[in-house]
C-alpha cells in the first residue's frame, strides 16, 4: 500500500523541470467512488443528496493541460440567475486529496445577480476538484473535474512573508460600472499564503496563510470566503456584484498570524 501511495503521490511536477512528462497518465477514475471523497462528503454533508448540477446549475472550468500544480486557475459559473426566490447561497470548492480538502467556502447574496468565482488553486496530488453549490432552498449540486498535477502544496513557497508589500491589494473592474446588473470585480492580495507542507518552512513554524476574506459594498456583505493554502500565493478572486448605487467596495482579509489586511475602492458609474 505504501508503494501505491508513493507512486500516486507523483511528486512535485512543479519542481521537475527537465523531466515533466509522465509516460502514461492516470486515467480518470469514477468520481463518485474516490475513498477520500466518500469520507469528505459524509463529514461535510452527511446523508444529503448531491445532484449533478452540470446541466443547469453550475459549470466548473479549468484547462485540460496543466503544468503548474501550485497555480491552477479555475472558474465556476452559475448557470442560473440569483433571484430572491432561488439563489446560490454557498459555493464549496473541494480538492479530494489536498491536505485540507475544503479549499474554500464562499457565501454569495441574491443581490449578486449571478454567481461566478475565478481563483487559482494548489494541487498536492492527482485529484478531483469539485465545485458544490448549496441553494437557499437547501439543495446541493456539483460539477467536478479530474486534475493531473501534483506537488503544489509541498513545493517550496519561494515567496517571502517579510515582503514589504505583504497585504497589498489590487482591484480591477470595468471603467464603467452599470447599476442594477452584474458587474465583474476582481481583487488580489499580495501574500505568500504559505502551505503547511511547503518544504522550505522551518520546523515548528506555523504556516502563514489567509483564512478569511470578506467583501462589502457600502457596508453590506456581498461575498465572503473561508479559505486556506489550497489557494495559490497572492490569492485572487473574481466575481459578480450588482450595485444599486455608487459607493465604496471594501475588502478585509485575515491570516493565520492574526494580521488583518484591509483596502477599499470607490466605485462610480463614470470613471473609477
Amino acid at each position: 500500500m505504501n508503494f501505491v501511495k508513493r507512486i500516486l503521490t507523483f511528486i512535485g511536477a512543479s519542481l521537475l523541470f527537465c523531466q515533466l512528462a509522465l509516460a502514461t497518465p492516470f486515467p480518470e477514475p469514477d468520481h463518485s467512488s474516490i475513498p477520500e471523497w466518500i469520507m469528505i462528503k459524509q463529514l461535510m454533508f452527511g446523508e444529503r443528496e448531491i445532484r449533478d448540477g452540470s446541466d443547469d446549475i453550475l459549470a466548473l472550468y479549468l484547462n485540460t493541460k496543466l503544468d503548474d500544480s501550485s497555480t491552477v486557475p479555475i472558474m465556476v459559473n452559475a448557470l442560473m440567475d440569483q433571484t430572491e426566490d432561488k439563489y446560490i447561497k454557498t459555493l464549496y470548492l473541494v480538492i479530494d486529496r489536498n491536505p485540507i480538502p475544503t479549499a474554500g467556502v464562499f457565501k454569495f447574496k441574491p443581490e449578486a445577480g449571478r454567481v461566478k468565482l475565478e481563483t487559482r488553486l494548489r494541487f498536492e496530488k492527482f485529484s478531483f476538484i469539485r465545485a458544490i453549490v448549496e441553494t437557499n432552498t437547501g439543495d446541493l449540486y456539483m460539477d467536478q473535474r479530474w486534475v493531473q498535477v501534483a506537488g503544489g502544496c509541498s513545493a517550496p513557497s519561494g515567496k517571502n512573508a517579510n515582503d514589504p508589500s505583504l497585504g497589498k491589494m489590487r482591484f480591477r473592474m470595468d471603467d464603467q460600472i452599470r447599476l442594477n446588473e452584474p458587474n465583474l470585480v476582481q481583487f488580489q492580495i499580495k501574500h505568500p499564503n504559505e502551505s503547511t507542507l511547503a518544504s522550505d518552512l522551518e520546523p515548528g513554524y506555523a504556516a502563514r496563510f489567509i483564512d478569511k476574506v470578506a467583501v462589502e459594498f457600502n457596508g453590506k456583505s456581498i461575498m465572503s470566503g473561508d479559505i486556506n493554502f489550497s489557494l495559490s500565493d497572492n490569492p485572487i478572486f473574481k466575481f459578480y456584484f450588482s450595485p444599486q448605487a455608487e459607493g465604496v467596495l471594501s475588502v478585509r482579509a485575515e491570516d493565520t498570524h492574526d494580521t488583518i489586511f484591509t483596502d477599499s475602492v470607490e466605485i462610480g458609474t463614470d470613471k473609477r
Binding site: R6, I7, T9, F10, I11, G12, L15, L16, Q19, L22, G151, S154, P156, S199, D200
Partner: peptide, 18 residues
C-alpha cells in the same frame, strides 16, 4: 544548499518514478 534541502526529496522520488 538551501535549494538542495528543499527540493531533493521530490527529486529522489521522481528518480524512482522516471
Amino acid at each position: 544548499p538551501k535549494q538542495i534541502r528543499t527540493r531533493s526529496r521530490f527529486y529522489l522520488e521522481s528518480l524512482e518514478q522516471y
